[in-house]
Design a protein around this nucleic acid. Structure first.
Lengths: 228, 228
DNA sequence: CGTAGTCTTGAGTATCCTCAACGAGGGTGG
DNA sequence: CCACCCTCGTTGAGGATACTCAAGACTACG
């Protein structure tokens, strides 16, 4: 259903090695694919859980996953959506701090045993550079998340969310956006209530900024209207 | 005035290399100090600016810095406070995406030319591992930020902010907290208005959760009351 | 076809933002 | 040394926004 998509952030391609050609992170790291194990997950199935030993890194091949945590008051918070080509599971801790579950049925994830990848990186500096680049991309995603959460109004948050999803999901400038996640997921991602997400989408629709093909297929009519 | 403090996140010490002793990141990377240049900055002075070439990494030696950006509507958002021992400036982009300025007068920062550090990492896998570990710590900080921003109520945000500052600033469990930044900085960090920050602190004070030695020295009377 | 989960809309209330005023503290200049 | 200015911090009043609770429509799936 979903094609495997690599390197959604082309603007983030490693340009810092002036002598080297600009290559995709996935390409840079093709050599670690030899130690990867691929898993296929059902909807809601867990990839790893909080407190699980931090002994693998991961990459979404197709589908989507959500990284989440449960607050003490019972509210769920989604820290990140993981999309095809994106690596995750990096932690400075011995254990993972979040749960990661598949958002859609049939999500495929590549698992990399960390010690074996570390060993590869030890033997080949280029792999080490690739890993660093990947973790820098993760930092970039998280900082972008913080900017979205930093908006004052829910309408801005939802607009910025749609813009982020367009950015991350379609390499071509396709104005049609497929939101694989539920409204509840979006709400827990933006830290607003489900009703507020729904209302904000309605406002954007009434304004003519977007239109619905169906509940999860959205056409972006006025991309610039989403930015604020 | 401020002592140099390394490795504030001891819980994040590299425990993933079972055979190796658990060493501090700063220690792991002592070999890169040979290429560092130390700068001393005045209050508000810029360490790097948006669109500056991404050719250095940095570490706060003493004092504090803020990483910020300006939204299109003129509002400033602070993405991170940088504290002694913390590394920053990692980006997958060719340019930096944020401004970083010193919060207090006399902030000292160590600057590492990226290409020279990369070259060192190429020649010594241990340095590469240390760099990865450092970027993982940065990821951990950003995820913690997202959790704080994810709180619904301003009082929770401010409480979580104080808890984070206690966590990050005092290695010993000293209940006195020095907030080097202004209320405006806190507001832009938590994405609430200055007035709301002020009111929340007042509420916490009236509740007996905290008390003020002066405007920027806070005693934490009931740490658990901050968490929610 | 029925059930459970999802999505939307409405009503009422609580929170937070904006505008405004005032006080405290530090620095500068007369 | 004091007056003045400027920034920062606090508090109040009013209004806008978002949350909670509730109900109903729609969808997916068995």
């Amino acid at each position: 259903m979903l094609a495997t998509k690599h390197e959604p952030q082309d603007a983030f391609a490693p340009g810092w090695q002036d002598g080297a050609p600009r290559r995709q992170a996935s390409e840079l790291l093709s050599s670690i694919e030899s130690v990867s194990v691929v898993r296929r997950l059902g909807r809601g199935e867990q990839i790893y859980g909080r407190d699980d030993p931090n002994d693998h890194w991961y990459r979404i091949v197709s589908g989507m996953a959500r990284k989440s945590t449960l607050h003490s008051n019972g509210r769920r918070q989604i820290v990140d959506f993981l999309m095809p080509g994106e690596y995750f599971g990096f932690s400075a801790c011995r254990e993972h701090l979040f749960d990661v579950e598949a958002v859609v049925d049939g999500t495929i994830v590549a698992c990399y045993p960390r010690r074996r990848v570390e060993a590869l990186a030890d033997s080949d500096p280029e792999i080490g550079r690739g890993l660093r680049q990947i973790s820098f991309q993760s930092i970039g995603r998280l900082q972008a998340r913080i900017l979205i959460l930093g908006h004052t109004w829910a309408l801005e948050k939802v607009g910025a969310f749609l813009a982020e999803m367009v950015e991350r999901s379609s390499a071509d400038s396709n104005p049609t956006l497929v939101l694989l996640m539920s409204r509840y997921d979006i709400a827990d991602y933006l830290s607003v209530s489900v009703e507020t997400v729904s209302r904000a989408l309605t406002v954007l629709r009434r304004r003519g900024s977007i239109s619905f093909v169906n509940k999860h297929h959205i056409k972006i009519l006025n991309p610039s209207a989403l930015q604020c």
